[in-house]
Design a protein around this nucleic acid. Structure first.
Lengths: 329, 329
DNA sequence: TTAATTTCTGAAATCGATAACATGTCAACA
DNA sequence: TGTTGACATGTTATCGATTTCAGAAATTAA
């Protein structure tokens, strides 16, 4: 590859002048500018961004961490981020932590080492106290994660409102015995969701029984298991807010093959509005989360702060969710 | 961030010596080595990989291009690649082309500019002739794509065998009227698949009718449409090889709600063994593709060639697929 | 004891760019 | 006519590492 020196030599100018042309600085005579541009084009020269980054300590790259790309939610989140970043001519480096704390810290090193200009955390593996010191090396923000005190932007959606909206809808439909599925992460998100569920029940003075709470609800298999648990209950819920499309799909599949009629015998609401909602028979009522927008907002805020060299402050953005009504309720 | 000079100064040695320690060179006295290591640890110093890359023109990064991450197949492929790369301490830069040729060429520029050490193309947007010139800047390989003459490794699976296996199974089950769905890309993959379908039919002297070929088969909606087309046919196929789980799911969904019994009235085989096969009711018989292995092999071959600075030669790897039998056949 | 190696160390060049600073024109203006 | 400022260009330092080369010290061989 040609370097800036070669271009300079060929044009009989100093590399400073070439650099000026490259960066659209004023004070370069028309003739030289044109000649230099011509030679650049002829040699198909492109400046080394490695050298540039080293000198300017700007990389035009943001890093995004997710547990694993292999999950439709995160895949879409990344799509939103990358797409938005691209419109600002920023590259995005995708980092899968595979739920590994050490990998997340490696990512932080990239920031310290100026290999990326900023970081979007799509998940938080380590304690915030371990992440926080890296803030002095560049902007970090949380997307789809929450922390009660971290002094950075937090882009998410209103889990509380989403959950209470879903449960209220079930109540409107006449249900009085409503169950709830949750995973076992002690995340703020889970707490909010549960609080929303509670609030809706309380508002209508409905009971919430311990037996109607189902833990470890992640995937389809969990759905199978949970249906079996329900099946054995003496007093069964007539409706379920599952907090996951996959769990909902599993429950429905098993219920149907056990002779249940959905939604007559059991109404089920998912979460995320993933593809499988449409495939499931009956199709699943769910909460639609504006995932792409989530990613786009996060990317936009981060990149803007990078460009303006403005420090990021705490700022909690909550995008609106939507209840998508289908056949399972 | 501390730099190598600071470490050198603190230890009263030249940075050359520090560099030697960093790179495990011999000929550094025990005392100095230990002292330097101690100071490095105290300052929590890590060398700038930007500077390193600039000097050595090695980045320890491979780039992966896919059309969009937002597709379970590619998401898994990337997972396989990234995971394998990680075991070699290589980073992977994921590049979504969004089906855009220019973006793919930008990726090639990264190789020319020595921002990455090699490239895995998970899709091919441009003509090979446009890509080929970049081979002189570093190794490139094709994964899940095929080109009849490109002189690089091609990691894929045997589409021909997979298709003929699927169709043969339908024949074994007694079907004589078997349809086929395809998308409209004129890719080698599609050709192979169709050829496999044909071969199985011919081997059993079964007819293949034009009316049983259904084009533009990508997603669930296409499945809906295709079922409608089938429904209108005078002579209907009794089985379908769809070439896509999503299409299969769409067809099944529509068929069931139209009163069809699956597989009695219509047997359906998907392709990819995605999650939705299990959610669909009935669950979908499909072809399982070792996606993770595909990615792992690709990463391994690429990284090894980078490490050994060996040029890559044409080499067509075809991993085995598996027929997963479920309820839809 | 001298010559030849091996071990250890550092100065300076290099990778490819940008930034700071210096200098030289040339026109406008008092 | 001398001063000022806009324009145009180049020299040198710098980012943070590795590499080349050269020389000194210690060890071994003759």
């Amino acid at each position: 590859m040609a370097s800036i020196d070669e271009i300079a030599k060929l044009c009989n100018v100093s590399k400073t002048t070439v650099s000026r042309v490259l960066n659209n600085h004023p004070y370069v005579s028309k003739e030289k500018r044109e000649q230099i541009l011509k030679v650049i084009k002829e040699l198909d020269y492109t400046p080394s961004s490695l050298a540039r980054s080293l000198r300017t300590s700007k990389t035009h790259t943001i890093a995004v961490s997710v547990p694993s790309i292999d999950h439709p939610f995160f895949a879409q989140l990344i799509k939103g981020i990358s797409h938005e970043a691209l419109t600002y001519s920023y590259k995005s480096l995708i980092f899968q932590t595979f739920y590994n704390q050490a990998v997340e810290l490696e990512l932080m090193e990239l920031l310290r080492n100026k290999e990326v200009d900023g970081i979007i955390l799509g998940a938080l593996e380590n304690e915030w106290e371990l992440i926080e010191p890296f803030l002095k090396y560049g902007p970090i923000l949380l997307c789809n994660e929450y922390h009660p005190s971290a002094d950075i932007p937090i882009i998410g959606y209103d889990e509380f409102e989403a959950a209470s909206k879903a449960v209220s809808y079930l109540i409107e439909k006449g249900h009085q015995k409503i169950g709830f599925c949750y995973d076992h992460s002690y995340s703020e998100a889970q707490r909010q969701r549960k609080a929303g569920y509670r609030k809706a029940l309380l508002a209508h003075k409905l009971p919430h029984k311990k037996e109607w709470l189902f833990g470890k609800a992640f995937d389809i298999e969990d759905g199978f298991r949970i249906f079996n648990e329900i099946y054995k209950l003496k007093e069964k819920p007539t409706a379920l807010f599952t907090g996951s499309d996959q769990v909902a799909a599993g429950i429905i599949k098993k219920a149907v093959s056990s002779g249940y009629k959905i939604p007559e015998d059991l109404a089920v609401i998912g979460y995320d509005n993933q593809l499988i909602c449409q495939v499931s028979a009956p199709a699943i009522t769910t909460i639609d989360i504006p995932i792409m927008e989530l990613g786009q907002q996060a990317a936009r805020i981060l990149i803007q702060s990078i460009k303006q060299q403005a420090e990021l402050k705490r700022e909690v953005v909550r995008l609106a969710t939507k209840l998508i009504i289908r056949e399972s309720t």
